[in-house]
Design a protein around this nucleic acid. Structure first.
Lengths: 282, 282
DNA sequence: ATAATAGTGTCTCTCAGACAGTATGTG
DNA sequence: CACATACTGTCTGAGAGACACTATTAT
């Protein structure tokens, strides 16, 4: 943030307008500072929790008990509390809804959650949505996050009994994807969800994030089905295997195998790479 | 946004707590609604204006006249006004600082600014920074944007006489890049700048955004120097040319030429593609 | 046996990387 | 002329895409 605006005396902010020719000390300035006159806006952290269920992409939604959009389904989330880090608010909301503990990844200088052998799951910021009319009550700015988790961190773990369940993304009305039929989402959550899905589709190409959708250990078949569910198209099996195994740091074998419907499959765990060069193109 | 929190009666929000067994109508609800009790936070839109000057990446900074961080250099930006779209606030700040009119690109359903033959420049959201201690006065949440512009949309166009100038990115202290020496930035703006530079470096690989840094018409040499400035490494000329010209929709020839220090160069303008498949790898 | 999935080998074609060489301007 | 930049041609090796084939389980 900054307020060069204030420095140029054009903001309506609550800063004592000391003439620039008579500077005051910083301590003095902060003591005299009145925060109550900044524009009243509320900030929420909303999370798009994505998972793969039965080969399909699914998203966690909660049913709204109150107005507005009563009875509609919406992304889980809530207000950022006073003096609470926005990223921390996202972690808190995710934990309350799913029981999962993930920290936000992706900012310079912070090394995000998942590393070698870490817990399944990934949490990152998506985008901030700040249209003034997106909430009929007041100007609510939503900082949206995407969480990618393995199946069945069900809302069961949530402490309070809000109605929450996973929906198949294909069963929702998402105009941005040309999906005109299906359940309508509250607020601008259809836009947010569409952006999240696009983000994840792109990220699977050039990162190892697909592994965030499966529990360890996993088979290459399971990993491939993640790609197919997210991209919505089939992936050539032999070439996928060659590509994944030839990318050092993507996965590493555990040595044991798991039974399948056919020949038993080698099991793998996540390794330490996060980016894929060259990418695994769609 | 949403407030399932409120729906579950666990938020401290300013919603009249009507018992869930006695629902009220939505109009009634909105009339009784008191927005004043939401957590007090301020929201700013800050912009990382990047350009290429003399073959180097440069960023527009303003000198802070007031406390805190008086005398330090900071990213241009300012408070989001009441009922103002956050993206619109970013456009407004950019216009005030540089005179450029750009709209924010990148959200599903909105087709961002630049198209065929459009104005040079690109504006997109970067990330939101919401640590509670990033401003010593109060909890200020910054929605950061990246603008990529051609050289010399100088602060001259700015209406008020704030001290603003371009800095070479390499002359700033950016711990995230291992740059320990150079001018220190106010607040957490060094982190924001580092994230912006990383974003732009990545985007040049898989998008046509390099053309946002040059005015039309431009030569392939100018376009190549954009890549070299942003990536900080030399790009093989013949292969760059072959790649750019073979990607349909990247650039199109104007037919005329421009004098250079050697053989005159063919001139090009932007075309309609926005993404590069396959990418132009670093 | 069949069905189903896991896994290997190999051919081909595209393309990035490298480099040599030509074209066309200026001093 | 030398020099600088623009532009072209071509060789080579890596790798994606496609496909045939083998392996190992269950029924």
């Amino acid at each position: 943030m900054n307020d060069t605006a204030e420095g140029r005396n054009k903001a309506s902010g609550g800063v004592p307008r000391s003439p620039r020719s008579v500077p005051v000390g910083e301590a003095e300035y902060l003591a005299a500072y009145d925060p109550s006159v900044y524009p009243p806006v509320a900030v929420t952290a909303d999370i798009v929790v994505l998972t793969v269920r039965n080969g399909r992409l699914a998203v966690l939604l909660v049913e709204r008990a109150g107005h507005p959009f009563q009875g509609c389904w919406a992304l889980p989330g809530g207000f950022v509390e006073e003096h609470e880090d926005v990223d921390a608010a996202a972690s808190r909301e995710l934990r309350e809804e799913t029981g999962l503990r993930l920290v936000v990844a992706g900012q310079a200088g912070t090394k995000g959650g998942r590393g070698h052998g870490g817990q399944a799951g990934h949490l990152e910021q998506l985008r901030t949505y700040g249209a003034p009319d997106r909430d009929p009550r007041l100007h609510v700015i939503s900082v949206a996050y995407v969480a990618m988790v393995a199946d069945v961190p069900a809302p069961a773990a949530g402490s309070d009994a809000a109605v929450a369940r996973y929906w198949l993304v294909e069963d929702l009305a998402l105009p941005a994807f040309g999906q005109r039929h299906g359940a309508a989402l509250a607020f601008d959550h259809a836009t947010i969800l569409a952006d999240a899905v696009e983000r994840v589709r792109a990220k699977l190409e050039y990162s190892t994030l697909a592994t965030a959708f499966v529990d360890e250990p996993f088979t290459l078949g399971e990993l491939r089905r993640v790609y197919e569910a997210v991209w919505g198209e089939s992936v050539h099996e032999a070439n996928f295997r060659r590509k994944v195994l030839s990318t050092s740091g993507f996965v590493e074998p555990t040595g044991s195998t798991a039974p399948t419907e056919g020949r038993p499959a080698q099991l793998y765990r996540r390794s330490d790479a996060t980016v894929l060069h060259p990418p695994l193109l769609r």
